[in-house]
Design a protein around this nucleic acid. Structure first.
Lengths: 371, 371
DNA sequence: GTTAACTGCTTAAACAGTTTACCAGATCAT
DNA sequence: ATGATCTGGTAAACTGTTTAAGCAGTTAAC
């Protein structure tokens, strides 16, 4: 007890015995924040007890449960999830990595996947964070930082393909990740996809049955395995039908309307007698239809058009588009269930295909010109 | 040195003096997590110094900076943001609250806003979290929990209107929130909107100049102030033009294609001599165009159609749609800048209108039938 | 010649939870 | 009566940061 200065210096030492750390009266957003400590004080129990009450730990008696919960209610206490996560090592946040397309967010294809993911994540008590895989995002390894800095527990990769080697970083580091509606046969990564092969089979069946032989294929990026699956089926079925299509019957439409239109130009220049166009997604099919009409060709009388995905708008175009319905929403929900399982420690590989089916509408008809 | 058990018990007491708390060797996702403490040890400085190095505190000497950074590099240290946020009271996460529409995520309108928000948030060092304002989400006050439990620093509200009284909760609690492309004149909430009035003026000008008098208006939800703004302009300009339109000239299209089609039916039943349809968004305009064509009316020869929003796809339909271009992407980026300012403590009210302009395309023409 | 403001760094107290080891009292078997 | 087990709870260590306060020496201002 010498001088005032030492008194202050002694204070912390004293407090370690009396343990009366006053609750912070700091205000945030105008509301006084109430912490677990205050609940504990008011309920005359320890913070450990409060924690156990919140986590429904069976070691807490019914009486204490009720007592503590009443105080929680009274004080309007809400556990701080930063502290929870820091301590428990779980963030309960999942990231969705989207391709850096200008309109990725307004693309119904991604939208459906995202809807499925978000809905299921919510049900499973997880939050969803959005990330765009811009070049410098990847260069700076931000996709890894998301895990390393404990932003998220898991990650969905949408719209990735062989040109995106970063996907294997996650597996290498042991971070939970699932490829949504895409896969890498030789990379041993988790994935959930629609059954593109079966969808393509159904398309080729109906086109061949309608008498089409001169079928052109508008592919998207051929770096995607799903697109290669479609191409594989296309070439095989054309061969079976006695018509060996070569590369000249295909063109890349980059998954966009504009690309689909350009690809249509390209293919029809090479093969003016084309009677059907099979596009690997609906947007390209739409571009193809418009271009065909611009050329003065009628759909489906002169040329049949088939799409892939069955995005909402396509029932509304004229003529309505025959396409393969992909259960994108369900792929999203399933992917989410899978990722959450993986986050919780499940170790077997995740790989699932979901059924796709043809939706016959007005953009296809029996072949008129038997060339 | 009595017995082994007391030796263990003594350990913590000893550590308070020697301060040798061993770094956790816990593994997460297969990678050993390295904490600031380890960096400090290796660099022979205190954790505070490491923290200051990371935060570019000018009080740290160049030499120490370099020394510490080298160790950080060597160890591959990444600061744990949960701990950072817990300590600093900033999460650097913003939430986007979307209306619980089945296809909200694939709606280009929301997509554009979202793109703008996400891009700017990224540049400003913030993460974006997605939330859907489902009825029970609001009932359980989860929108408040997002703040109370320190999930986020701020919130964007998209697609809200007068039927969503929850928006004022944020202001009441003092939580940073900005209404995106919507506003509440009497609620004193922050907002960033496109200039719907000016857009509507431009539409009415061009329609009147083209000779149209029998102009029908397809509104969305009239609970939205922006829609009321358009209606106000519509009625005023119709009046100025000597044609007092009443309620029978308007119909609600609920912002959807289907609704737009139905509204078109409704209005044309009442007024078969309608020469122009002004829809409050592009989707309804598209629905209107399709329905008109189904009825055997030509667009624009028989009926002109004007939309609002200028979503990407609309340049691609046939005929291409005359519409008001709203700078949705920019509204998103601006809203984000504003919200971040608010999070950082800015106190003046945020209220901004961004210019909109008419895009004249092929769905409008001079009136043919001067009724 | 004192006071004040740097300087570059350290110490320790926050931040707000979870979890483990331990402990006192009650119950039960021997 | 005695030791073992069960019950319901507590204290303290732990998660990994930020930051206010302090320290001892130098320098500029009054």
């Amino acid at each position: 007890m010498s001088e005032p200065s030492s008194e202050i210096a002694d204070a912390p030492a004293a407090s370690t015995t009396t343990k009366t750390r006053q609750p912070s009266s700091r205000r945030n957003g105008g509301t006084r924040r109430v912490s677990m400590r205050e609940v504990a004080q008011q309920a005359s129990v320890s913070v450990a007890t409060v924690s156990m009450v919140l986590n429904d730990n069976p070691r807490i008696s019914k009486a204490t449960q009720i007592k503590v919960r009443r105080i929680i209610e009274k004080l309007g206490y809400r556990p701080n999830r930063l502290a929870q996560s820091l301590s428990s090592q779980y963030t309960r946040v999942l990231a969705v990595l989207l391709p850096p397309l200008r309109h990725a967010f307004s693309d119904p294809y991604f939208g459906e996947l995202l809807s499925g993911i978000c809905d299921r994540a919510d049900r499973l008590g997880h939050k969803v964070m959005l990330e765009s895989a811009k070049p410098d995002f990847l260069r700076e390894r931000k996709h890894m930082e998301l895990f390393e800095r404990r932003f998220v527990d898991g990650m969905f990769c949408l719209g990735v393909n062989d040109r995106h080697p970063f996907v294997k970083d996650f597996a290498a580091a042991g971070f939970p990740m699932v490829c949504v509606n895409n896969y890498f046969p030789d990379l041993n990564l988790d994935y959930v996809v629609a059954d593109y092969r079966s969808g393509a089979e159904q398309v080729m069946n109906v086109l061949l049955q309608l008498g089409h032989k001169k079928v052109a294929l508008i592919a998207g990026a051929s770096e995607a395995q799903t697109v290669r699956d479609i191409m594989g089926v296309y070439f095989a079925r054309m061969h079976d039908a006695g018509f060996d299509a070569d590369e000249s019957w295909t063109a890349d439409g980059r998954f966009t309307e504009e690309g689909g239109a350009a690809a249509t130009d390209e293919v029809l220049k090479r093969h003016p007698d084309t009677t059907a166009i099979f596009a690997c997604n609906d947007k390209m099919a739409l571009g193809a239809m418009h271009r065909l009409m611009d050329m003065g060709k009628r759909v489906p009388q002169d040329v049949s058009v088939v799409g892939f995905d069955d995005i909402q708008q396509m029932a509304f175009v004229n003529p309505s588009l025959t396409t393969v319905h992909l259960p994108l929403y369900e792929v999203g929900t399933r992917a989410c269930e899978m990722l959450v399982q993986r986050v919780r420690g499940k170790t077997q590989k995740i790989a699932e295909r979901m059924p796709a089916h043809l939706v016959l509408r007005d953009s296809t008809s029996i072949v008129s010109d038997r060339g």
